[in-house]
């Protein structure tokens, strides 16, 4: 067991994958000489060379498409897109090609590409670098969408994604790269199919993922001091989502709060809460509550930026409302 940062965990996975499988390569903007915008690939160019750690032009559509093409012919490409906002430039490639080709070819081809991107606010990078499009990608059939919140998942999910025959989009919250966690020795394999109960509780289920997990766990601690036992679910995999775990938890606690950094309207939290209403209605003791992003482009000033995303006190408040003490 050793303590590593989230960034180191990603790098650990990259190194393991490159070492173990010659088909794996990484490409993206500034992943080589600069070592990655978030320094995940620092030192890998020296270790694996320019053929496998490839700096690309500022052309998301072009290099994402190249990654899809490489996957089609048997490679295992890892495409790094600097931020979720820029991935919109590659949306055509991801949605119209990566997600569709298995289906359009009648299963003759698969697209085992892995696309990593940073997501979320909190680093004062303003509205063009800070949004949360998890809900958008999770909307698209043909994609797997994952949101690692821990160092174990940051490493394990990248490796599992490379073993998956279909395109996997990995959202790495920019606020997590410096966070630290314990990495067991040997590091465990993880799946791309289940949600994890991050904290057990009996009174209310707090459902979240990625960058909001720690704030939600903090809320659970604060709630415990007020006599409310909150269960925290780290969804991990956003598509396909592990509804069984979510609904079973809500059936125990009878109350649900969904925490997601994306905008509330039409967003990821809307889908989760709608599913609970559809399939868990008769288990509910209170309306499902959501703590989600405020309906503004993420502001630059720090106080406004923080005010626009879910914070611990809001999660506590929503949970208290759900248990009838708000």
């Amino acid at each position: 067991m050793s303590e590593v940062t989230y960034r180191e965990a990603v790098r650990m996975a990259l190194r393991e994958a490159m070492t173990n499988d010659p088909r794996v390569f990484l490409m993206g903007e500034d992943v080589g000489r600069y070592g990655g915008s978030y320094a995940c690939s620092m030192g890998l160019l020296e270790e694996f060379g320019e053929d496998r750690i490839r700096d690309t032009p500022l052309s998301e559509s072009g290099f994402t498409g190249a990654g899809i093409g490489a996957a089609l012919v048997g490679m295992r490409p890892i495409v790094e897109i600097m931020t979720v906002n820029f991935s919109l430039l590659a949306l055509d490639q991801i949605v119209n090609n990566a997600a569709t080709l298995r289906h359009m070819s009648g299963g003759q081809v698969s697209v085992p590409v892995v696309i990593r991107m940073s997501t979320g606010a909190g680093k004062q990078l303003a509205a063009q670098h800070s949004h949360s499009w998890e809900g958008f990608y999770a909307h698209v059939p043909g994609l797997k969408v994952v949101s690692p919140a821990t160092v174990v998942d940051a490493r394990g999910m990248l490796l599992a994604a490379l073993e998956d025959p279909d395109p996997v989009v990995i959202f790495e919250h920019s606020g997590l790269y410096n966070s630290k966690g314990e990495m067991p020795d040997p590091p465990p394999k993880v799946d791309l199919s289940t949600a994890r109960i991050a904290r057990e509780g009996t009174d209310v289920t707090l459902i979240t993922h990625g960058g909001c997990l720690q704030r939600t766990l903090d809320a659970a601690t604060a709630l415990a001091e007020r006599g409310v036992s909150a269960e925290v679910i780290d969804l991990r995999v956003l598509r396909p989502l592990d509804w069984d775990t979510v609904l079973a938890s809500v059936a125990r606690t009878h109350r649900a709060v969904v925490v997601d950094e994306g905008w509330k309207s039409w967003g990821f939290s809307a889908e989760v809460s709608a599913r609970i209403a559809e399939d868990g209605f008769w288990t509910l003791d209170a309306p499902v509550r959501r703590v989600a992003g405020v309906e503004v482009p993420i502001p630059y000033p720090q106080h406004l930026e923080q005010a626009s995303i879910p914070r611990t006190p809001q999660i506590v408040e929503a949970a208290l409302q759900a248990v009838g003490r708000g």
């Binding site: 009878h254 003791d285 209170a286 009838g324």
Partner: peptide, 11 residues
């Protein structure tokens, strides 16, 4: 009721 807004809840 002891739930939100005095609603009757399972307990």
């Amino acid at each position: 009721g002891t739930g939100p807004g005095g609603a009757i809840v399972g307990a």
